[in-house]
């Protein structure tokens, strides 16, 4: 266990050397518009994220595209995520490259006769390229819990889920 911890800390300092202070120091608050695809629906999200040292922490609010726009059934979607910027590089003067693993938690719901809820937990990666405007790609796999109230009792079903997300990020400061 100690070895793993030591190698993790060494790798952090290694990436810090190469990553310098570049991207993390220049833009701390970011907003983004993203489209993500999951097992149950595709989603459009608006997200706000904050960069704190190596971590990007964010929250997104969105809606299920198929349910809301094609079936006229509002399907709100909430996400919380945190990514660890493992690799940060400058590409030329104007661009940067960030890559790292992270976790994403989300919640979705919509109504049929009763409300159907989905809770997901994912492990994934974040990749972003650019500086002021960035292109971002995230993907991951995880666990999904579907729950709803049947005529008699509360039903819960779980299975594997995945997400693939692309978006545009704007660094406010």
């Amino acid at each position: 266990m100690k070895r793993i911890l030591c190698s993790f800390l060494i790798s952090l300092s290694f990436f810090d050397l190469f990553g310098q202070n570049l991207l993390s120091q220049q833009s701390k608050l970011l907003i983004s518009a993203e489209v993500s695809y999951q097992r149950m629906d595709a989603f459009f999200n608006i997200s706000v994220q904050k960069r704190i040292h190596y971590f990007e922490i964010g929250a997104a609010l969105g809606t299920g595209i198929e349910k809301t726009f094609f079936q006229q059934r509002f399907s709100p979607h909430l996400e919380l995520y945190s990514y660890f910027n493992l690799i940060q590089r400058e590409i030329g003067r104007k661009n940067g490259f960030v890559f790292g693993p992270g976790i994403l938690l989300d919640y979705t719901s919509y109504r049929i006769q009763n409300t159907i809820n989905y809770k997901d937990a994912f492990l994934g990666y974040n990749l972003s390229v650019g500086r002021k405007f960035k292109f971002t790609n995230q993907a991951g796999i995880g666990y999904m819990l579907e729950s709803f109230q049947s005529a008699e009792n509360k039903i819960k079903n779980s299975t594997l889920n995945y997400f693939v997300k692309i978006g545009m990020v704007y660094a406010i400061n």
Binding site: R39, I112, S150
Partner: peptide, 22 residues
């Protein structure tokens, strides 16, 4: 179907389909 949690024709899939209100 990718959004079907269980395999078609399984007990679990039949049970779940019958539990949805409506």
């Amino acid at each position: 179907m990718q959004n079907s949690i269980y395999h078609d024709n399984s007990f679990e899939a039949v049970n779940l389909a019958l539990l949805f209100q409506g």
